[in-house]
């Protein structure tokens, strides 16, 4: 075989390389890849939440009866199941987001680099405060 007819053929000066194909579901083979795809798919549940929230806003705007219909719809076991799964993914999003944030940003205070654990800690504190404010506003 000559080099000429051989991208695939082997010669002493033109070895035939073996290229490993990337399987379509490459991300099921490794835990870390699976966690990555799960993290990325959390965005679908973020979008689902926006739709769920817009329906709530519409119902609230339409009046008391519509609001009650919305509450009944949300109490449907299927919708509850979807929301429980969505909550799991959204919390996973929040945790991975806050944990990765210190890698992406460098914060300086008085010329000193703030240690990554402090940045992550600050994020979690902000999460706690924001959640408390949301719950207080809705329930107060």
């Amino acid at each position: 075989m000559t080099v000429k007819d051989a991208p695939g053929g082997y010669t002493d000066f033109h070895p035939r390389w073996y290229r490993r194909p990337m399987p379509v579901f490459w991300w099921v083979r490794r835990r870390s890849y699976l966690a990555f795809v799960a993290r990325e798919l959390s965005s679908v549940f973020v979008a689902w939440f926006v739709a769920f929230l817009l329906l709530l806003i519409r119902a609230v705007g339409q009046g008391e009866a519509a609001y009650q219909r919305y509450l009944d719809w949300a109490a449907n076991p299927f919708i509850i199941a979807v929301n429980v799964v969505a909550l799991g993914f959204v919390v996973f999003h929040a945790i991975t987001w806050f944990n990765l944030a210190p890698q992406a940003m460098v914060v300086r205070m008085r010329g000193q680099r703030v240690p990554p654990s402090m940045i992550a800690g600050g994020n979690y504190l902000a999460w706690l405060v924001a959640s408390a404010i949301v719950i207080w506003i809705v329930l107060a």
């Binding site: 870390s32 990555f36 990325e40 990765l100 890698q103 992406a104």
Partner: peptide
């Protein structure tokens, strides 16, 4: 890059390429 983060896990010299790329994006 979509911040899989495995480059940083694999790096034997603790270079943190994933962090470098995200800082670069910012």
């Amino acid at each position: 890059c979509t911040f899989v983060g495995e480059c940083t896990t694999a790096c034997p010299k603790h270079v943190d390429p994933a962090g470098a790329i995200q800082r670069y994006k910012l």
